[in-house]
């Protein structure tokens, strides 16, 4: 079992730090402290933190913060970053208006 799945492991209490106010996810304005706290509240994977705090769920879809969030979670858990799965990649890869997303191009063969 890797260390992420071993939820019985004691990672200690949340300890506040001076840079906790720093915004990490620029789109959803999630701070470093919030991410660290989330880990202590049981969110041990990038996906869990994402669902819990919306990191990487804003307009840019984690382009900027993906690696940073992963690094913060890993360091809070005391494990190497490579042990954490990155966030799931999903359609759409770029911001897109729903009206466009829903508009399939008409093709000659009708198999749009």
């Amino acid at each position: 079992m890797n260390q992420v799945n071993d939820r019985s492991r004691d990672i200690g209490e949340f300890v506040p730090r001076p840079d906790d106010d720093m915004v990490i996810c620029r789109c959803e304005e999630v701070t470093k402290g919030e991410i660290r706290k989330a880990v202590h509240e049981g969110m041990w994977t990038v996906t869990e933190v994402r669902r819990y705090l919306r990191t990487g769920m804003g307009l840019c879809q984690g382009q900027t913060c993906g690696k940073l969030v992963k690094g913060i979670i890993a360091s809070e858990l005391g494990i190497p970053q490579s042990e954490l799965e990155p966030a799931t990649s999903r359609v759409p890869m770029r911001p897109i208006e729903m009206k466009v997303f829903a508009k399939e191009a008409k093709e000659a063969d009708g198999n749009g």
């Binding site: 840019c60 900027t64 911001p95």
Partner: peptide, 8 residues
């Protein structure tokens, strides 16, 4: 910030 449409 990124100037190429990534960071929004």
């Amino acid at each position: 910030f990124c100037a190429i449409g990534r960071c929004t």
